[in-house]
Design a protein around this nucleic acid. Sequence first.
DNA 1: CTGAAAGCGCTTACAG
DNA 2: CTGAAAGCGCTTACAG
Lengths: 342, 342
Amino acid sequence: MKPVTLKEIAEQLNISVTTVSKALKDYPDVSKKTKGLVKELAKTLNYKPNTFAVNLRTKESKTVGLIIPVIVHHFFSNVIKGIISQAEKKGYLVIILQSNESYELEKKQIDLLLSQRVDGIIISLANGTADFSHLNQIIDQEKPLVMFDKIAKIVQCSKVIIDDRKAAYIATQHLIDIGCKRVAHFRGALLPQNSIDRFLGYKKALLDNNLPYDPSLVYICECGDMSFEEGKKNAKQLLKDHDDVDGIFINTDLVAIGAMTEFNNQGVKVPEDISIVGFSNWFMSSVISPTLTTIDQPGFKMGKTAFKQLYKEIQAIKNNKPKRPKTITLETKLIERESTEK
Amino acid sequence: MKPVTLKEIAEQLNISVTTVSKALKDYPDVSKKTKGLVKELAKTLNYKPNTFAVNLRTKESKTVGLIIPVIVHHFFSNVIKGIISQAEKKGYLVIILQSNESYELEKKQIDLLLSQRVDGIIISLANGTADFSHLNQIIDQEKPLVMFDKIAKIVQCSKVIIDDRKAAYIATQHLIDIGCKRVAHFRGALLPQNSIDRFLGYKKALLDNNLPYDPSLVYICECGDMSFEEGKKNAKQLLKDHDDVDGIFINTDLVAIGAMTEFNNQGVKVPEDISIVGFSNWFMSSVISPTLTTIDQPGFKMGKTAFKQLYKEIQAIKNNKPKRPKTITLETKLIERESTEK
DNA sequence: CTGAAAGCGCTTACAG
DNA sequence: CTGAAAGCGCTTACAG
């Protein structure tokens, strides 16, 4: 069963392709009668416009690309959901790619999306990304680009973020408020902006409370992938290095859960011996034992907002208006749970 | 900066578009010298073929569609990852849609994908799907279709599944082996084939062990969405209805975790009072307390396999060969953990 | 109100 | 080895 074309409809009705096309799109200069006939036949033949041809003519694909470091991740999968749900409302489809935290892959994927002629791109950067020419390439082509979560400040495009520094400050302040005197930090990879900002928030909270900042209390994730295993490893190392740490602010819930598992294995009690605050509010943080205090990061909303902004820019470009990059900061909040109960 | 076309390259080199096109695709009837010139210029101009035009000519989009009930779900997000990683290897892009367990949405989304002219579709059905004409529509158009996990046996297409009945049998048998005499079952929604099969496996295990099958021990999920809340609700109801249940086989880990949370709140001890086996082996099942015994379901592999099969069929159709639907069954295994430790 | 014609950017059968 | 021409299926400015 071959797909039906405008030509076939035109032949069956003995009218021109032009008129059929116009009738289906409700052009005002087609008679009601003709419109009726065309629409009816189109329906019975189950006509669907050939997107390839439409795209070629209109130079739009009604498709956007999304590049994400990891999919199997509570925060990111929520973002995906937010983007897809919003895109659907506007009649857009979403092509999803996973960069696996690799700069090389990310670069290739952007090339792919550009040659696919998507109407815009949404991205959260890989931990390994330090060069941004592949992103500027998107901007040079006047394609809308929206970054979220892991962004590059220097790139001139719209961004949807949270105030990582402030959130980290609040998380650390909470540990201090409940009495912690030696607060460590598992900061994740070195490069990503949000990792830097969270670290700065942690440091500022210490200094504002007249607690010394001790670099040996900051644990970096070399592997590039913030994972459960990383949390275990860091926790093990911390127990070797220090015996006086009474609180830790950890970059991601998953890592925090890894750390808590290690502490539990070694008989270190949370929160009695060490209090812990995570980041992101993964679902599982509310069901493990002890439940994990964390910063709620609105993934679904972030996805929705990112698409909305992208859509605005797509429209702006269509109407030959400037697209005006915008940075949108979403609210976060501290969720207090058992891991910091004193 | 407008995208470069074949025409521009041709003009700059004073040769025809035909030759440029052939040179770039390494046709044997173009001189080495010309090929060299064309390729060099294409590179410096950063030429990328216009996919719309290529698609229109070749009638291929190198894109496949994926419809999934929920994205924020450990099993499904692993499947997505598997599909995307395999697709990338073959140069295919993946458009992802979420049906939200709604038949209506699923139908619309298939229409969307078909009018987008994707080369094939991979789907896991919504719990609400009982009619399959929208799926047969895909098959009528001779588009490859692969179903996985939640399938419809009656639809003539390839399927990637596990042996749900067998897995459920093993799960239930495990509960009986450790001494359970009154085993309940949270079966999830009524319609999906895997829900039916798991129920049948549960029932058969009881009967094979000379335990009576009691329908009042089987809890159905009316809301259509197998969730944490559903687990809590069912657990609460079960405690009201029965005081002699000593084991439960639960359709999905997330629901099992909901149930364990409710039991914990009410002072019912797992596994001392009630032993629990889940299904799917979500990551969090290995870190909660008690850790959850479950059936490991290979999501990533399922995704990979589904795409591989789809790809084979796409190739077959391209070469005018029959596509021969195939059902592939992947292995599962029981993961014993604390929730069934006696 | 209707339609012939050009064109989007490519591919490929065919002629030379 | 090179290129003119047709055509994929649509949209739209223009003529009548």
